[in-house]
Structure formats: structure tokens, C-alpha cells
Design a protein around this nucleic acid. Structure first.
Length: 630
RNA sequence: GGGGUGUUAGUUAAGCUGGUUAUAACGCCGGCCUGUCACGCCGGAGGCCACGGGUUCGAGUCCCGUACACCCCGCCA
């Protein structure tokens, strides 16, 4: 068998042969994707990453080869030497290589395969848990191979494009100093420094700024990042960013560079021309109309802000809304309590939801912590029916709300009210849910990847620099402490920190945040005022971020940057349903690897060497025995 | 930390208001077959119904708990 590989080199992939190759003698290597054994003749679909080719063993094949052919089973790894023959009247139009087949002359089984735990086919209907258990087999599926090959191409295009714009690909360490704030870090104990720990870098943030201080001017890196936070459909504990930093630039310069890269990716991967520059939306507008900072602009159903109307109408006669109002002022007028809002979404009459369907919507919002889903159906006269609000609401208020929502006969209004952040979370998710339910957007992915109108890119700009931390009762950096405030906003740093806007930006595509960054703060005086606004003194700042602050004092250039989520880009460009489909070896929602069984326990000796003692409760022996074995 | 969905041959599923031998398809094993491409035909093996308790004369089915997987909130850009 080894002689086969030693002497016979592969001439073609299994996706390469066409009618023009008829008559050629070829050598193919691959896996048995399917077999059809007719006794006298055996048909084998041979698969590699490029495609499928039918190999035939007929009666005129050498008897020994014919005998081996009968032994073939699914997923055997084999080599075949044979002649390319036209299929004549038996063409298979479903196959790229369907015009030809290879009449085998020589066959070598490199390795047999045990029966595979699930079928290796394009259609994926195996439980993900089982797929992850045998990921190397799952990865034999053509769709996954296509996705990862596409991702490889993305890497290539990124390096070419960034290089052509004068960016240097520079590396940064993974084992870094722990810095407080932001995402939770994975910690790595240091053997050489007993009792001390590294952190795995959650991003190269500080180092890329240091590259700018050093004068590298334009940096990029395709880099792994690590965050010890709970997982989601689009969040893995280790993920890849296209990390970018530039000196002597404005926000617009960074947008232009990113747009160039993205336009190139979409052109070369999908053949689609994405119009640039991308539209921009103020953070404030995004929150008001969509309830989050990553609006999906492929459909309407904007949120309707009713807070002002409810306040103006003194609660509108709705008992549930009256507690949202504060004390009356001198004129007897009541204002909404701070942080309390009322919003609605209008579901058009055409949707015609049944009681059961609206009850399901209520379950949906309750799952997000909402107390319920008040609703009102509008009739021809503008009256509300099927609504707990209808009895008590004043006609004036009702008319004002109908007008604000643009509601007419048959339309359904859905309300949320209370704490702003809660209302926004629920309403943002409700809008997306309704968009999918009404068929305005697909469950996932773009409607038609080859249509530029299926891709709604957007820059969300000018967010507040700080957000108030309710628990710590102080202002905290919304992004990070080194974001440059707007010049016009700096005056509010001391008086009204919530009003300070900054040069931070997110790139959003179809409701997915695909990147975010900022112009950095390089003025030490303003930097000190920013720290002060967060209650961080000079000493504390120095202790936490000393090396960066110090570096910024040595002639740091004005600079800024962005990081794009490579995995999310790959997910969107492949139409994948989850990040896990574009990551070769992903983790489960609990952060485990079902194939290798990581993380696992280590020996007492290993811990001692690292000066660590675990406080985790050991599993009872009885429980351990109950665990399914690998 | 909280809410939701699920777990039945190797795989995908069916199994109704509890009823005695738990079905099917694909895969696997054996046999037959020269034009298939979801090949076909005949025969066969394969199950602690995730695990642990409970209710009941009787549990795959009902109840409680646990584990695992997935989705969401919190968390995280």
C-alpha cells in the first residue's frame, strides 16, 4: 500500500475532472462518500475537499482490484488510478464532475473506517452535541469545508488589502497583565512568580496603542482574543478579530479604511458591490428608534417613543402608567420619573394576530424579565379593543398615541413601560422577533447574499462616553477610559458627565455588531479629567494603567482604531446560523470542548507546582460513576 | 444567577388521555444483483427510553431533582 503514495502522485482533486479530461489517466485520493455495489459493477463516489468524482469498477477490472472494491465501505480513505471516461447517456447533472467517471485500474485502501457515528453528508441533521464529539468527522461535510475554505480566503484578502493600504501586521502577546474593567479575563498562573497571574489578552488594545507611540503608524493583526464571559449564539470565549490602529487620523479616515476592506471582502467572496461610504446614525437615534446600538435596518417597525405623551396626559388614565410619574411641580404638572419610559410597536393590521399568538408574544417578553405585554387593537373609530388599557385610557391620550404610532383600523399596538434599559432590551428583541415572524427578515443570514440590498451596513456614532453604574453609584467608561470626548462635550466632564459624547463608533451589519473602536484620548490633561469624572485619582490611574499613561507622555501621536469580529464576518459571509459553524473547534455554551473534554481536572502535583489550591467541591464518587464515559 | 426547549437503537425521528412484545427510515452484518448516482431485492443483529427518586396494580408516557446540549435575560461590545 505505501508504494501507492510513494510512486503515484495525485494528479487531480475530486472536483476537477470534466469532459475535456476524457481519455486521461488520473490518480485521485479521497474518502468513500457513497457506494453502489451491483455485484458485477461497483460505483464509488470519491470525495475530497474539492468535490465528488464517481469511480467505477467493472467486470473487466483486474480481479484483485474488483475484489478490493467490494470491500470498500463509507469513509474508507483510498487512492485510485484510472482512466477518465465519458458517462455518455448516464450523465449526472447534479454533480460538477457528472459528465465523466473514472474507470479504475488500480485501487489502494490507505485506511479502513469504522462505521461513522453519523452520516457525512451535506444535510446536517445530527444533534450538535454529537457533531462536536466527533468534530473531525463533522468537518468532513462539504458545507463546513466550504465555510472554512471561505474563511481562509477572507484571511488572505484581509492581509492583501491591509498590506496594500500600508498596514503592518505586527504581533502582540497573549499572556498579559490583568487590567481591570471590561470583560472578565482568563487567568494563567505563573510558575516562576509564585502567587502571581497573567491574564489572557481580551484584546490587543493597549499594545496596539503602544505601536502608535512607537511610530509604526498603521498596524493590523488577525488575532485571537479571550474573554471569560457567558457564551451566546454569536459569542465564543476565544474568538478572532481583525485588529486595526492608525496614527494621524480622524474618525472618517478609519471608516474609509474599514469600508475599503469590507467592500473588497464582499466583492471577492460574494461578487457583490457594496456601496460605500456606509450610512451613519447617531447612537441616540438608534436607541430611540430601535432600542439598541446595533439596529437591523432591513425593515421598519421602529419603536414609538410615548414617554412625553404619557407625561403630558398625566398617565393617560392608565393605572399602570401613573406610578411612572414623579411629584407634581408648582404648576401641578407631573413629569416622568428619571429613567422611566413608555414605548410601543405597531403591528400592521395585515398581520392579524390571534389571541394565541399575542399570548405567545407575551411569553416571549416575560422570558426577558418583562412583567407583561400590554396591547391594544385599534378599530375604525380609533377605539381600542382587546386591551386591558382600553377601559380607563382617556380619549385624548388614546388619540395622541394612535397619532404617534400612525395606527389605523386593525393595527395592533404593543406596549412596554418602566425602566429604560429593560424596556429597550425587550422592545429591541420584540422588534426582531416580529420582523422574523412577519417574514420581513429571515431567521438568520441575508435574504439573498448576491443582492447588495440584502446587506445593510451602518456606522453608529457619537455615543456617551460614560454610563452610570447603578451598583457602584458612579460613572464608568462605556467603552474604555481612553476614548476621546467630543471637543464640544469636554465642558460637561465635571458638571454633567452623562452628556459627554465621544469619538466611539460601531460598525453594524443587519443587526449584528461586526466591529467597534474609537479615537483615542492622547491629551493627558483631558485624560486626567476623564479619570476624575469616574472617581479615579491620579495615583489609582497610574497604578492601573501606568505604562500606557507613561507612554502617552512621550510624544504620542493622535491615533485611533477599530476591531472587526472576524468570526461574525465569516458567519455573515457564509450564511451560517451560528458562530460555531465558522469556527473549526468551537466550545459549548458552558465553554467546554466535547471532543477533548477541556477543561479538565489536573493533579494535585500540577497545582502545587503553580502554588494553587482549588476550593471547588470534588464530585462525589457516586456522581462520578454516574457520568457517561467518553 | 434567572427563564425557556430538548434528551427513545450508531443516526434521525414516531410512540395520543399511563396498559404488558417500544416502531420506522437510514446506517451496520450476511446473501443476490453490470449502469447506479437517496441503486434495488431477500434475511439478520442492534434499546437500562439521559441519570436518580417518587406517584401507581402498572411509567418511555405523570411529578420532583440532577446532568448534558441548545436559545434568551443578566454578563459581555
Amino acid at each position: 500500500m505505501p508504494e501507492f503514495i510513494k510512486e503515484l502522485k495525485r494528479t487531480h482533486s475530486c472536483g476537477a475532472l470534466t469532459a475535456k479530461d476524457v481519455g486521461a489517466e488520473v490518480i485521485l485520493f479521497g474518502w468513500v462518500a457513497n457506494r453502489r455495489d451491483h455485484g458485477g459493477a461497483v460505483f464509488i463516489d470519491l470525495r475530497d475537499r474539492e468535490g465528488l468524482t464517481q469511480v467505477v469498477f467493472e467486470a473487466d477490472t483486474d480481479a484483485a482490484v474488483q475484489a478490493t472494491a467490494h470491500e470498500l465501505r463509507l469513509e474508507y480513505c483510498v487512492g485510485v488510478r484510472g482512466k477518465v471516461v465519458s458517462r455518455g447517456g448516464n450523465k449526472n447533472p447534479k454533480l460538477a464532475t457528472g459528465e465523466i467517471e473514472v474507470h479504475a485500474i488500480q485501487l489502494s485502501i490507505f485506511n479502513k473506517s469504522e462505521p461513522v457515528p453519523f452520516p457525512i453528508e451535506d444535510k446536517v441533521d445530527t444533534a450538535e452535541e454529537k457533531r462536536l464529539n466527533h468534530r473531525y468527522l463533522d468537518l468532513r461535510r462539504a458545507p463546513l469545508q466550504k465555510s472554512l475554505m471561505r474563511r481562509s480566503k477572507m484571511n488572505l484578502i484581509t492581509r492583501e488589502t491591509m498590506g496594500s493600504m500600508g498596514f503592518l501586521e505586527l504581533e502582540t502577546p497573549f499572556l498579559v497583565k490583568y487590567t481591570p474593567g471590561g470583560a472578565r479575563n482568563f487567568l494563567v498562573p505563573s510558575r516562576l512568580s509564585p502567587g502571581k497571574f497573567y491574564a489572557l489578552a481580551e484584546s490587543p488594545q493597549l499594545f496596539k496603542q503602544l505601536f502608535m507611540v512607537a511610530g509604526f503608524d498603521r498596524y493590523f493583526q488577525i488575532v485571537k482574543c479571550f474573554r471569560d464571559e457567558d457564551l451566546r449564539l454569536d459569542r465564543q470565549p476565544e474568538f478572532t478579530q481583525i485588529d486595526i490602529e492608525m496614527s494621524f487620523v480622524t474618525q472618517d479616515d478609519i471608516f474609509a479604511a474599514v469600508e475599503k476592506l469590507i467592500v473588497k471582502l464582499w466583492k471577492e467572496i460574494l461578487g457583490v458591490d457594496i456601496p460605500a461610504p456606509f450610512p451613519r446614525m447617531r447612537f441616540e437615534d438608534s436607541m430611540r428608534d430601535y432600542g439598541n446600538d446595533k439596529p437591523d435596518l432591513r425593515f421598519g417597525m421602529k419603536h414609538v417613543e410615548l414617554t412625553g405623551i404619557v407625561a403630558d396626559h398625566a398617565g393617560c388614565g392608565v393605572p399602570l402608567w401613573e406610578p411612572l410619574l414623579g411629584e407634581a411641580d408648582a404648576s401641578g404638572k407631573k413629569k416622568m420619573k428619571p429613567g422611566q419610559i413608555v414605548k410601543a410597536i405597531k403591528v400592521p393590521a395585515s398581520a392579524n394576530f390571534s389571541r394565541t399568538e399575542t399570548d405567545k408574544l407575551e411569553e416571549f417578553v416575560k422570558g426577558m424579565g418583562s412583567k407583561g405585554l400590554a396591547r391594544a387593537k385599534v378599530d375604525e373609530a380609533g377605539n381600542w379593543t382587546q386591551s386591558p388599557l382600553a377601559k380607563t385610557i382617556t380619549p385624548d391620550a388614546r388619540a395622541a398615541i394612535n397619532a404617534a404610532c400612525g395606527a389605523g383600523a386593525g393595527d395592533l399596538l404593543l406596549f412596554q413601560f418602566g425602566k429604560e434599559s429593560q424596556v429597550h432590551t425587550v422592545m429591541a428583541n420584540l422588534r426582531l422577533h416580529l420582523g422574523k415572524k412577519l417574514g420581513l427578515i429571515p431567521e438568520y443570514g441575508p435574504r439573498d447574499p448576491t443582492d447588495p440590498n440584502s446587506w445593510n451596513f451602518l456606522w453608529v456614532v457619537d455615543p456617551p462616553l460614560f454610563e452610570y453604574d447603578d451598583e457602584a453609584h458612579r460613572w464608568a467608561a462605556a467603552h474604555h477610559a481612553f476614548t476621546r470626548p467630543h471637543d464640544e462635550s469636554v465642558q460637561f466632564l465635571e458638571t454633567d458627565p452623562g452628556k459627554v459624547l465621544c469619538h466611539r463608533y460601531d460598525c453594524v451589519l443587519n443587526g449584528v455588531e461586526i466591529g467597534g473602536g474609537s479615537i483615542r484620548l492622547h491629551d493627558p490633561v483631558v485624560q486626567a479629567r476623564v479619570f476624575a469624572a469616574m472617581g479615579i485619582g491620579a495615583e489609582e490611574a497610574e497604578q492601573k494603567f501606568g505604562f500606557l499613561l507613561q507612554a502617552l507622555r512621550y510624544g504620542a501621536p493622535p491615533h485611533g482604531g477599530i476591531a472587526l469580529g472576524m468570526d461574525r464576518l465569516a458567519m455573515l459571509l457564509t450564511g451560517a446560523e451560528s458562530l460555531r459553524e465558522v469556527i473549526p473547534f468551537p466550545k459549548t455554551q458552558k465553554g467546554t470542548d466535547l471532543m477533548t473534554d477541556a477543561p479538565n481536572e489536573v493533579t494535585e502535583a500540577q497545582l502545587m507546582e503553580l502554588f494553587i489550591k482549588s476550593t471547588a467541591k470534588k464530585a462525589e464518587p457516586a456522581d462520578a460513576a454516574a457520568q457517561p464515559k467518553a
